[in-house]
């Protein structure tokens, strides 16, 4: 029993070190980053996520989209994120400071979504893709999200949001019925469309410069 205090103390210090290094130091050094006010257009970047999109983010969270989709773009020359058109520049810490929940993700069974709103700005595309990914992306293993839509009888005027006319033949409902996104579906699409990091923060100015193909692996990030 005589060694117990020593063992305990060392156990404490072991974790205290990484807690200090990984958690505390970073919280101090960049845990209070402020939005950047742009005098040209009088807005503070990153922009606040609009209400409907913010609700859509909750849908994104509760459906577990993060299991297959990341939200981070790696720098040019490391991975082929930028070559794939997933972003114009690498993601930086500033991009995330307005987010209550940061969903970087660690899996790319599906493509990165950090700039999906810039890449795919068409509502209809997203609705069709969510209804059944095979419509827009044949061979995808993304599950269908038909539960974000409602098939209902047309009463009075057809809904302007109805998508059945854009669906391929085999998905169409019986005559007199329409397929409309639920509120969850609508907000999710709104969220996806809001995803775009296009603002050039001071610290990203230098990463826009295309480096020589094999140039420096390190050090472009300060």
């Amino acid at each position: 029993m005589n060694r117990a205090p020593l063992i305990f103390l060392s156990i404490f210090f072991a974790l205290a070190l990484s807690w200090t290094g990984i958690v505390l130091v970073n919280q101090i050094s960049y845990g209070s980053l402020q939005p950047v006010y742009d005098e040209n257009d009088g807005k503070a970047y990153p922009l606040q996520t609009p209400g409907l999109a913010a609700r859509g983010k909750l849908v994104y969270q509760d459906l577990g989209c993060i299991s297959c989709h990341s939200q981070q773009v790696r720098r040019l020359g490391y991975g082929s994120d930028i070559a794939r058109g997933w972003g114009e520049r690498q993601s930086v810490a500033h991009d995330y400071i307005r987010e209550d929940r940061v969903l970087l993700g660690t899996m790319r069974t599906g493509p990165d979504l950090r700039n999906i709103g810039a890449r795919q700005a068409d509502h209809t595309w997203h609705y069709l893709h969510l209804y059944d990914p095979q419509i827009t992306s044949a061979g995808s293993n993304m599950p269908p999200h038909r539960f974000l839509f409602e098939t209902r009888k047309v009463i009075g005027q057809p809904s302007p949001k109805a998508i059945q006319d854009k669906l391929p033949e085999k998905y169409r409902p019986k005559a007199g019925y329409e397929i409309v996104p639920t509120e969850r579906g609508e907000s999710l699409v709104e969220y996806l469309l809001s995803l775009k990091d296009t603002y050039a923060y001071p610290e990203t100015k230098n990463v826009y410069v295309e480096p020589a193909p094999e140039a420096g692996k390190e050090g472009e990030k300060k």
């Binding site: 072991a14 990984i22 970073n26 810490a93 990030k221």
Partner: peptide, 28 residues
């Protein structure tokens, strides 16, 4: 003891290339 000292720094390796300071990634 070597596990106690080293293991708890390794988690950052899940963020290599991500938008977190490069020095933490290197430490990981």
């Amino acid at each position: 003891w070597s596990l106690a000292i080293f293991y708890n720094w390794t988690g950052v390796s899940h963020l290599i290339g991500g938008p977190v300071p490069v020095w933490v990634q290197s430490a990981g």
